[in-house]
Amino acid sequence: MWLVGRLSVVVIPVSIALLLAALLAPAVAHLVNIRVPRGLATAIVLIAGLAVLGGLLTFVVIQFTDGLPQLQKQLNNSLSQVRDWLINDLHLRQEQIQQFIDNSISFLQNNQAAITTNALTTASTVGEILTGFLLTLFVTIFFLAGGDRIWHFLMFGVPHHVRDRVDVAGRRGFASLVAYVRATAAVAVVDAVGIGIGLWIVRVPLVVPLATLVFLSAFVPILGAVLAGAVAVMVALVTNGFVTALIVLGIVILVMQLESHILQPLLLGRAVRLHPLAVVLSIATGLVVAGIAGALLAVPLLAVLNSGIRSLLHETDPHPEEVDVLHDQEAAAPNDDPAEAADQPGQS
């Protein structure tokens, strides 16, 4: 864990690239099966994925910019109501409220140096994020274009008499990762659509940005849903009042119950089913080791380890005929090295 923390700048992009490869590999394999060259198939899938991501982000920014004036107006009205409540109900004087505002402004001015330092730190963080994004994209290209050869190379470090079992365990682990990413994406879409429709019905502003936040946070189990729901409730409270906030809270709880009791058991199935305690502890460990990125990657890593270790412990005779995404990649991109081909399982 210490080593992972020290190398997080490299480990996190590679791990995210593996998640993206698990999400995009079926599309690449489908294109390869219809006689599209693997390099071209990888380029098509990546370009399409980046186009979808860029279009979504652009749409969210436009919606946020368009809804910001309305949000500011409603926020000013809410602050005026709070001020009237403080004066009329709590019997505070206007001078006391103004003094509090002046003290807040003085605090900001006195700590301007610390705020500037934090801004510079944020700029440095943005640079690290950009570098990590480029590294993630670079690694994803190689995972999609030559994941089978990378896996065969790693298998050379495994003793020959257990290579078949480790190979099958690794493929089953990757199959669990594919299932996890697909199911999580589907659940995230349902959460975003359900909560977005609820926010639109009760006329909460910034529906699209809030629904997008719900979609992204769904990839962090348990904690992500709580944080996104809290943000939606707070926006509803500030803009539309207490009753609307309670309605939004009910909508969020209803959608989360639908996710927990119907969607996740139906989509994830037994292959990647994990105990809630294991999920919470893995997320906590990920937060300690690598922050938000660690929380994002902890559960898929646990799913891969769970599937792979179960395969190693319970499979004494692996089934070579088992077909998964990696086998499809291997069939579509045969190994051209005779020496490596001679050392592959089943051909030695």
Score class of each variant (00 low, 15 high):
A225L: 08
A228S: 13
A228M: 04
A228Y: 07
G229V: 04
A230R: 04
V231Y: 11
V231E: 05
V231W: 04
A232F: 03
V233M: 10
M234N: 10
L237Y: 15
L237Q: 10
L237G: 13
T239D: 07
T239I: 07
N240C: 04
G241S: 07
F242C: 06
V243S: 12
V243Y: 09
V243E: 12
T244L: 14
A245Y: 08
A245L: 08
V248F: 09
L249P: 01
G250P: 01
G250V: 00
I251C: 05
V252Y: 10
V252N: 15
L254S: 15
L254G: 14
V255P: 09
Q257L: 14
L258N: 15
E259F: 09
H261C: 03
L263A: 15
L267A: 04
L268W: 05
G269P: 06
V272W: 09
V272Q: 06
R273S: 12
L274A: 07
L274Y: 03
L274T: 06
L277Q: 14
A278F: 14
V280R: 15
S282K: 02
S282P: 01
S282T: 04
I283A: 08
A284S: 08
A284Y: 01
A284E: 00
G286Y: 00
G286W: 01
L287V: 14
V288E: 02
V289W: 00
A293Q: 02
G294R: 01
L296F: 00
L297S: 02
A298S: 06
